[in-house]
Amino acid sequence: MYDLTGFQRDLLYVTAGLEEPHGLALKEELEDYYEKEIHHGRLYPNLDTLVEKGLVEKSEKDRRTNMYSLTRRGQREIEARQKWVDQYVDQ
Rank of each mutant, 00 (worst) to 15 (best):
E19P: 06
K58P: 10
L50W: 07
L24H: 10
E57S: 11
R63F: 05
R63V: 11
N66C: 04
W84S: 09
K61E: 12
L70M: 08
R81T: 02
E57D: 06
H22L: 01
Y33L: 09
V51N: 09
E19C: 02
L26S: 02
W84P: 00
R64Y: 13
R9W: 15
L55N: 04
G41N: 15
Q82G: 02
V56E: 03
T65P: 00
L12S: 07
E37A: 15
R72I: 03
V56K: 04
N66H: 14
L47V: 10
K61M: 12
T49L: 03
L70W: 07
L24I: 10
G74T: 11
L30F: 05
Y34H: 13
R73C: 01
L47P: 11
K53R: 12
K36R: 14
V51D: 07
E37S: 12
L11S: 09
M67P: 00
K61W: 08
S59C: 00
D32K: 15
E29L: 00
E37P: 01
N66F: 12
T65V: 15
P45K: 04
Q82R: 14
E20M: 11
R73A: 06
K27D: 04
K36E: 15
A16R: 12
E77K: 10
Y33G: 00
T71S: 07
E77R: 11
Y68A: 08
